[in-house]
Write a protein that binds this DNA or RNA. Structure first.
Lengths: 337, 337
DNA sequence: GTGAAAGCGCTAACAG
DNA sequence: CTGTTAGCGCTTTCAC
């Protein structure tokens, strides 16, 4: 079943089989044909382990996400895996579930498997863990976080563009009192989203009523529970901006429980534009973060890091966000303001 | 950085390092201590490739799913991965996206990586592909499908229990005219769900009005589009049973577009009980399929297949489904019947 | 209890 | 263009 068996059947050396299978040009067509037929006869499949051992290349890429249960990630994973497989790589997935301990074992697993690069699409990674990777000259790529450096890619997301559009959209609809439901406090991406929101609502026209900032967790639960706090505010906001779509969906549900509904009683804006955002009731107005671009940049940055020739951070243009208007936002009712 | 370096530093042979790291008893505590300190000093991490090559064990399990975008699967993947990692395995994920061609390349990738077992949580697998796996004595486990055999596990799901409860639930609420929205026609699990539904609605009390069977795709889109066909039926059903929760969510949205809503205008029942089912508007009455049980059985079956001693099919008790009543079903309005 | 040595299956010089 | 050979890093007999 191994390469020797194929060589024996084809009446050639193992080197020739290896060359044929790997598409090295210098094999005569006649011999190549014999080798291929032997390959098919035996059902030969090269042993990746052996290959990796001798070549020093595992052809595995690590992908670390925080919450595989958040629909944003599967959509991202799918894209990343697609690029990877196209280039002959397999993906080793790690879901940390926001837990630093799991993050540590995940990094360990990746090192053991000799991954050739790691895309970290999650919360802050401990410096010591990062050094384990960089110390082994493994290219890394982060979103929003991480120090730049050789073999370290940093994907920038222009949150502000989308957030500004959303805030203006709400302003034009007559909203003057906003709320914001954030994500996990230690998640840099969540901080940046909130910061962008705070900045966009620092313009003079918003000075009359400062926005209400509420805590969330980027899960359905967090949005659901935030509704209580939102409704009991001294001055009830007329619109809420959520740090991700899952949170917004939780809000929608929370409103329903109170006998309220968007956008009549409260305008709701999400963030991410997961596929499902089009199917909520009402469909969600949200800021789109293009997942496929994210996946592509992460993959390309890793590949660049492997080349060694170019700095992987370079050539990365920030990912642009943009507002998608659907049905969860509306002109504020005079009665409600 | 390799085992030799550790051996040199600890002043022992590589064999002793290997034994220490692998916890073989026959290493004296004194020597073991020296080895471990050398291991930490160097930051030694065993090379899985080399290990796999010599031991013939890759410690990788394959997991094939059809649609990673369907929230049911991430929840399943998470469970499966957890069991695997606990036992020292990594998971190679394959998402076929319902495409037989992708399935073929996925199986190939798994063979190349020398996976020790494959869990197939998706549509029918071509016999030739399956033989590639079984011919290499790789344990397999299927849900709903696949011929039983040595090293082949078959997880059975008792769909009928949950479906019967759901149908009875609807009957008691006064519904007499039902509809069913199915899944992909070539997906065995979808067929079984539909069959269970048909069987449960073959009792005498349902003879007056045969259910309306509609096609779907287990996606939001399918449910959404089915609403049109459902509403234009000569006799409009008062309740619809969906082959999965995503379909049901699509229906909810489809109704909303028509200015209708569940359960007032149509009772809706889903299938799977994904986490999100609790957060739809209204929350979804659905048949729960315990994901963690599924993940556990899949994993255990694979482990049993590796033992060789026991037939992996044995010891598997069918997975039970049960009705979870939430807000998307209600007593049929006299006016609507 | 510990070490020496033989490979696991493959690729990549280096000869021919 | 093809064959011979030396390892990749590790585990595992087999001696000691």
């Amino acid at each position: 079943m191994g390469i020797r068996e194929v060589a024996r059947r084809a009446g050639v050396s193992v080197a020739t089989v290896s060359r044929t299978v790997n598409g090295v040009r210098s094999v005569s067509p006649a011999i190549a044909a014999k080798v291929w037929s032997a390959v098919h006869a035996v059902g030969y499949v090269p042993n990746t382990q052996a290959r990796a051992l001798v070549s020093g290349r595992s052809r595995i890429l690590g992908l670390i996400v925080s919450d595989i249960t958040n629909p944003f990630y599967p959509e991202l994973i799918q894209g990343f895996e697609q690029f990877a497989v196209q280039a002959g790589y397999d993906v080793l997935l790690g879901a940390t579930n926001y837990d630093p301990a799991i993050m540590a074992t995940t990094v360990r697993r990746m090192i053991e498997r000799k991954v050739e690069g790691v895309a970290v699409m999650t919360s802050e990674i401990e410096p010591s863990l990062m050094e384990q990777l960089t110390g082994r000259r493994i290219p890394l790529v982060f979103v929003d976080i991480g120090p730049p450096g050789l073999r370290i890619g940093n994907i920038q997301v222009n949150y502000e563009a989308g957030v500004r559009q959303a805030v203006q959209h709400l302003y034009r609809l007559g909203h003057r009192r906003l709320a914001f439901i954030g994500g996990p406090s230690d998640l840099k991406s969540a901080q940046l989203r909130r910061d962008a929101f705070v900045r966009c609502t620092s313009a003079p026209e918003w000075m009359a009523a400062r926005p209400l900032l509420l805590a969330g967790d980027h899960k359905l639960e967090g949005g659901f529970e935030a509704v209580q706090r939102l409704l009991s505010a001294p001055v009830r906001p007329t619109a809420v901006f959520c740090s991700n779509d899952l949170t917004a969906m939780g809000v929608l549900r929370g409103l329903d429980v109170e006998g309220l509904r968007a956008p009549r009683d409260l305008s709701v804006v999400g963030f991410d534009d997961i596929h499902m955002a089009e199917y909520t009731i009402p469909p969600l107005t949200t800021v789109r973060l293009p997942r496929l671009d994210l996946a592509r940049q992460a993959f390309q940055s890793l590949m660049a890091g492997l080349e060694e020739t170019s700095a992987p951070g370079s050539g990365l243009t920030p990912i642009e966000t943009s507002l998608i208007v659907r049905g969860s936002t509306a002109r504020v009712e005079p009665a409600a303001s």
